[in-house]
């Protein structure tokens, strides 16, 4: 559901959320994060509030709170933890060659914070969150998530090719599914759909399709993401086709054109050749 709908359903307005955040952690800038930042939350979701504080006064793990019918979780982000942040995403633009050798690798907590800032559902913005945005270059989160997905896609494709050559049917099939998932993540990232929690992948895809951010409909996506290994048909073809299509779409929209994209596409093409040539012809065990 749209987050505005959810808040209305719960009887919660934005001022009340800011109020509970500041009563819980003290003076802070407040943003909505998590699934609600992407408009993919449900009525059972909690409201994840990211509270940007200056220093160490705020509690490390605030107790959950309630506002109206909504459960609220406050996540404390200390600006001091992000000063001279070594994993700034700006290198993806300012020095893509270096980024190709050593991609930034922010922690999961930092990535969730970047996602929050990237989605920019600000309830109470200010200089504290601005400082973290600047230090992390959170506005480039889509580039990072896209590149990371491309790298994972390439690694999985390489593994699948090896598994195919060894006749490891089940591992190859699962790996092929991962190839398709990572390629889809890259395509989603190009459109700004960058929630780092993979449980939202399908919800994000549905939203992206509605927004015109994916060149598919759900009927086009599902066979590639959920191959049927026990049927009579070839379960690889749809997944590989989806991976090719998503990578092509990502390559079309990703700037800079990181060399990892070409690598991933070449590996998926090799995988496609295996499938087109009639592989896997090995026996399921």
């Amino acid at each position: 559901m749209l987050t505005t709908q959810l808040l209305e359903f719960w009887g919660v307005d934005e001022a009340a959320l800011v109020d509970v955040a500041r009563r819980t952690v003290g003076p802070c800038d407040v943003y909505i994060g998590g699934s609600l930042a992407d408009d993919v939350g449900t009525i059972t979701s909690d409201v994840d509030l990211y509270c940007f504080v200056a220093g160490g006064e705020a509690p490390v793990a605030p107790a959950p709170a309630r506002v109206g019918a909504a459960g609220v979780e406050c996540h404390v982000v200390r600006v001091a933890d992000y000063s001279d942040f070594p994993e700034s995403l700006s290198v993806l633009l300012t020095d893509p060659d270096r980024a190709a050798l050593r991609t930034p690798y922010p922690s999961p907590a930092a990535l969730r914070c970047m996602h929050t800032l990237y989605r920019d559902r600000a309830l109470a913005p200010g200089p504290l969150s601005d400082a973290v945005r600047r230090e992390t270059a959170a506005d480039l989160t889509h580039l990072y998530v896209g590149l990371r997905s491309v790298i994972s896609c390439a690694a999985s494709a390489e593994d699948v090719i090896a598994m195919l050559s060894m006749g490891e049917y089940w591992t190859a099939l699962y790996g092929t599914r991962l190839v398709a998932e990572f390629a889809l993540d890259a395509a989603l990232a190009v459109g700004g759909h960058v929630n780092p929690n993979t449980k939202w992948r399908m919800s994000l895809a549905e939203r992206a399709i509605v927004a015109g951010d994916l060149p598919y409909d759900m009927d086009g996506l599902v066979p590639g993401l959920f191959p049927s290994p026990l049927g009579d048909g070839d379960p690889f073809t749809a997944a590989v086709a989806l991976a090719r299509g998503c990578l092509a779409y990502a390559a079309d929209g990703m700037v800079p054109a990181f060399p990892q994209l070409a690598t991933a596409r070449a590996l998926v093409e090799s995988l496609a050749e295996w499938v087109d040539a009639g592989a896997p012809t090995f026996v399921r065990t």
């Binding site: 700006s90 633009l93 300012t94 893509p96 600047r134 506005d139 480039l140 700037v255 800079p256 054109a257």
Partner: peptide
């Protein structure tokens, strides 16, 4: 001079330059 972008406008301008380079 090394680039030191600070905001989304700067980022998009550098990305524009990358497109032109390509």
């Amino acid at each position: 001079t090394p680039l030191a972008p600070e905001d989304i406008y700067d980022f998009t301008k550098i990305a524009t330059e990358r497109l032109l380079d390509e």
